[in-house]
Amino acid sequence: MSKAKHIFVVIVLSLLGITMVINLNKIPGNTDQINFIYSHITNNAVLETGSLNFVTAILYDYRAYDSLGESTIIFGAVSGIVLLLSRKTLPVSSHGLSFIVKRTFGMLTPFIFLFSLYIISHGHLSPGGGFQGGVILGAISIIFSIVYGSEFDFKRYSPTTKTLLETGGALLFIGLGLAGIIFGGYFLENLRFLNTEIGSLLSAGSIPLINTVIGFKIGAGLAIIFYSMIQKTFKEEDKL
């Protein structure tokens, strides 16, 4: 790049940084500029939805239709990437890394899986939720492909399983919405059958169910994207 272009880039980035600081400082805090929705959510969200985490309450209860749209976008992205990349013949590092890395990740991978399940199932109690935990689930497939080679990933967690998880997650989400129509009257209405004490694991109606469904769907979708990029299309002896 030339000198003038460098200076232009620096000026644009600095302006972006300044606007980001100004906008972040203008976000209303807990005390000032209380409007109707803010006060309604802070006063009634725990009683109406049973979720302690207000972000999850908005994402998967008040605005669950938006989450359905987002997961549809990811579904379309996965379909497009698979359609574009699945016929290319790309070589792949199918041997994996060294012995030490393989054994250490053999110890660590169950704990990563447990952590992702924790984030998904505690989405209505603590920060996190279906999307974040699902991305960690997809990262397990990426670890399989990089550390053990893509053949191991193909054997342990086959593309059929991934496709089943992805489409099954989408269908279960829409099924939850239809169940909301039948039992409550609205699409994606909160089904209030998991109503134990607020703050325990099995509370908040259908929010944990939507979290679980979205988590497995997102994880399988990202694993499909990564797998279609490193697809194995050649014999093993050609590499060495």
Binding site: L97, S98, I100, V101, T104, M107, L108, F111
Partner: peptide, 16 residues
């Protein structure tokens, strides 16, 4: 504990 396990692991992978 995770740091104690993974940081030497990453170093081993980079060196190799």
């Amino acid at each position: 504990l995770i740091f104690l396990i993974t940081n030497p692991l990453a170093t081993h992978a980079i060196a190799r």
